[in-house]
Structures are given as structure tokens and as C-alpha cells.
Design a protein around this nucleic acid. Structure first.
Lengths: 203, 203
DNA sequence: CGTTTGGCTTGTCATCTGAATAAGTTGACG
DNA sequence: CGTCAACTTATTCAGATGACAAGCCAAACG
């Protein structure tokens, strides 16, 4: 069952944890925190439920690890592409939005988790905001205020408009397919949507 | 426990059903279909769980009744205000969007249910689309195609952008409050958001 | 005015579910 | 080669779940 003999213990450990976290992210996004069970997560990860409590003490801790992971992915995704030194600040802004949209196409989990947690203000929600969202939101705030291109009072509206417009179609992809006939997971659909939202917010 | 003596049986029956459906809508939006329990719904409605199986045969049927209700509300809400004969077609479109945003502020449940169901393509999802969403989507389609103001290929993108941009902030109101300090349930915030989204989509 | 009817309540089932432990197994590492 | 960490299997125990059955009580009706 274990990997090849060339695998060290530490490698194996990290590999397994990673596999579990990935499965957890999937399950949490699909069924919400309460709806997802550690048994199901273990099944998806190809192991057993006992191993989860071994690596992560509790379901809560596993959840936090999953969130950490998706935000780390978001961070690297945006960083990898933000360095394209664009002279036109508006076009740079657009490209940032396009990248954000592309990320949502590849990882619709983030949006689902946000909606799932955002409606009730329990401990998980406050942790999620204080740890991951506020830093990100304030970075956007600073960037836009420096340009002086937007009324600060409108910022929350712009932020949630962007997130909603840029994510929903991928989060409800099965619905979109059945309703409109368009498969939003297609490369061309992703690009069209990215361009659409970018032009919407930065005309 | 029962109402005043002036209440007829039929009145009482409808009143109770209505109360249960309202509670169900709330619970389903908050916890999703699986996460919401008929017991919890009964508690919210101020009755007992047995009554739910009496009025509605099953949890599924109750869910359908709840969806019917929220779409009926949406219908009357949009109808009540659509009759304002606007000469400028662009402004008429904007006003329609504003009304849609206002509806979402008053009834964030619709969006939450959509996200909850849209991610998995089970029987409930197909029913929801075929019964309620497609007619609405096609109505928008016809209206916009008549104007010739949008590339039909962009319609799905515009639709999901509008729904996402116009609903998310209200669906995750607690999160928005904590993250940005703005309470999206304020009358002024609702109006600001409505205007913002309307201008976004119809510049 | 009494009987019936139907909305409503209470109580119980049978099942399933969950997270968490505890005791065993295996293989890497010193 | 033995020890210890990674992993598995088995079990516990609490709580919730949807559905149902039997009975209650007031409105409806002749």
C-alpha cells in the first residue's frame, strides 16, 4: 500500500497529508462544513478515517488546513502572473481580474466555501476573514486608493461585484450547462468570461 | 394554540402551510437541502415535525414548495415595478436590474439555494432549472435579443455576472460586515449596490 | 346538539450518521 | 535489529434523521 522504497518517511507523511487536504477541500466545497464527513473525505483520499484524526486532531483543524491550502494556491497563482510589467495601469488592473477569473475556473471551491461560511458568523467565518480575507481585501484597497480611481465608499460594492461576477458561473457549472447550454469549464468559455468581467469592471 | 374563532379550517390550513414553507425556505437557504432537518424547520415554524409530513408528504415535496414560493415572490416583485413605462430602453433595463438587486437584498435565500443546488446535477437541480429558471432565462434572452444590444454568445456570461454581482454581497452579509465594515442590509447600501450594478452592466 | 371530520400533536421506530479512540500492524531509520 | 512513527482496523457512543401511527380536539355540518 505504501509508496516505493525510495520514499522517505517525511515525504510519505507530507504526501499523505496533502492528499487528505485536497480531498477535504473538495468535500467541504461540495457539501459544506457540516455536510462533509471525515469518513467521506478519507474515502476520497483513498485511506481511512482514523488517519485523519491522526494527522489533524479534529475536523476543524482539517478545515483550516484546507482553507490555508486554497488561499496559498490563490496567492501563487496571482503572483506568478502579476509580474507582467504592464505600462497601462488600467490594463494591468484588467489582467489582474482576468487572472482572478481564471483561478476561479480552476478552483471553484474557494467561492463555494466563501458562500457557505459567509452566511453565518461563527468562529470559522471570523477565522477565515481575519486570517485570509482581510489581508487580501486591504491589499486591493491600497492598490485602488493609490490610483485614486475609485470612491472608497464604493469599494465593498466593487469587491463583491467582482467576486460574484467572476466566480458564480464556475461554481454552478452543472447548472450553467443545463440552463444555457454553455459549458463554463471550456477554455474558450473561461477566456470569454475573464474578458467580459475585466471589461465590465474596467471599461 | 389555534387562532381566533373567526378563522375557518381552510384559512387555518393555508396559514400553517405558509408558515412551514417560509421556515423551510429559511432553513434550506441557511443549511442546504441535506443540512436542514424537518425538525428544525418545524421548530422555526413554531410547530412539530409530524405536521410537516402531514401537509407535505416528504422533505423533497416541501423543498419544491419552498422554491415555488420564492420564485412566486420574485415574479410579483419584478412585475409590480416593471410596469413603470420608461421611454429610454437602457434606463428601463437599468431599473430592471435595480429591482432585481433590491429583491436579492430582501430575499438572499434565492441565491443561496441556487449556489447550493447548482453544483451537483441531481434531480432537484434539474427540476429547479426546468421549472423555474429556464422560463426566466429565456424571457431575458428574448428581451435582450429584441434590442439586439448584446451578442447572444455573451448572454450566459452576462447573466451569471449579473446574478453574481447583484446577489453575493447580500448572501454573505455577515461576512461583508466583518470584512469591510459595511452593512449591506442598510437601505442606503442596497440602493448604492443597485445603482452600482445597474451602471456596471448598462453603462 | 351531537356526531363526524380533518388539522394537529405526541411518541416511537429503525436507521443512519457523525467524530473520536484504542488497540494492532508494518516498514523506515538509526 | 529493534524502536518508533506512519498507518490500519475495529469499536464506541452520542445524536440526529425522515417517516409513521395512534390519539386529541375544535370546527363543520346535518
Amino acid at each position: 500500500m505504501t509508496a516505493a522504497s525510495t520514499t522517505t518517511r517525511d515525504q510519505q507523511r507530507e504526501e499523505t497529508r496533502e492528499r487528505i487536504v485536497a480531498a477535504a477541500l473538495e468535500a467541504f466545497a461540495e457539501k459544506g462544513f457540516r455536510g462533509a464527513s471525515t469518513r467521506d473525505i478519507a474515502r476520497r483520499a483513498g485511506t481511512n478515517q482514523g488517519l485523519i484524526t491522526y494527522h489533524f486532531r479534529s475536523k476543524d483543524e482539517l478545515w483550516r488546513a484546507a482553507i490555508d491550502r486554497v488561499f496559498a494556491t490563490l496567492g501563487t497563482h496571482l503572483l506568478d502572473t502579476a509580474t507582467a510589467g504592464q505600462e497601462d495601469p488600467r490594463e494591468a488592473l484588467r489582467e489582474g481580474i482576468r487572472q482572478y477569473v481564471r483561478f476561479n475556473a480552476a478552483h471553484p471551491e474557494l467561492f463555494r466555501l466563501m458562500v457557505d461560511e459567509g452566511k453565518s458568523s461563527d468562529e470559522r467565518m471570523t477565522w477565515l476573514i481575519d486570517t485570509h480575507m482581510r489581508p487580501r481585501f486591504e491589499a486591493i484597497e491600497r492598490r485602488l486608493e493609490a490610483d485614486g480611481r475609485i470612491d472608497p465608499a464604493l469599494l465593498p460594492h466593487a469587491f463583491y461585484a467582482m467576486v460574484g461576477a467572476g466566480s458564480l458561473i464556475f461554481a454552478v457549472a452543472p447548472e450553467c450547462r443545463r440552463l444555457t447550454g454553455l459549458d463554463p469549464e471550456t477554455r474558450s468559455a473561461i477566456e470569454t468570461h475573464a474578458e467580459f468581467v475585466a471589461r465590465l469592471l474596467v471599461p
